[in-house]
Amino acid sequence: MTKPPSAAQLAAIKALLFALCLVPFALYMQRWFDDALGANPIEAITRGSGDWTLRFLLITLAVTPLRKLTGLNWLLRLRRMLGLFAFFYASLHFTTYFWLDQFFDLQSIAHDIMKRPFITVGFSAFVLLIPLAVTSNNYAIRRLGGRRWQSLHRSVYAIGILAIVHYWWLVKADILEPMIYGLILAALLGMRGWWREQERRRQIAASMPRPMPGGKVIPLVAKSPRY
């Protein structure tokens, strides 16, 4: 197995990844100021920030499967940053809606959240992301204890599903893109389910009494006598 990166190498990888994660944001900012976002820039920004939220959610959820498949355990050290970037783009997505699209019209926003299922679902997903972002630090892990922290952070599976539903319900007729994202999420969650089931079976098998090496196997059911 390859050697894990040294502390200095890991710091460099993290710095590079951080810059990379900001590229979509930078490109959208540049296109906004160059007036290059097409006829409806607010829609373009809303769509773009939503797309990138979903992509970062999926990338974050891909870390564990990738680690298991490659054996590169240090990949786990990048997960927090990726998850926080998912929250960063989700915040931009929400701010775009709140500010550029609705222009702080609280009444209209409240109406939307209550009456439009796709906005209800998207808003729920965003609200559920907040505690995860807030507890994405070592202090919170120590405070909560690993087990509780982990069960809290497993809500990201539900958030992923809500995000797909949000996208699926907003498109008019062409469900190709939400379907692709949905299939990727299904694969990422399916792998976890599969591994968990394998682990469960392994543990059951391990807890079953096994014949002693060299011992004699005594059949519990007597053979029927032959005449």
């Binding site: 006829a39 607010i42 550029l100 222009f103 109406h111 439009r116 796709f118 319900w169």
Partner: peptide
Amino acid sequence: VDHPRWSQATERRIGEFRK
């Protein structure tokens, strides 16, 4: 009469900022 998934009360005129 709203579309079942979004409001039809306002619109964004292309080129304008506010609805």
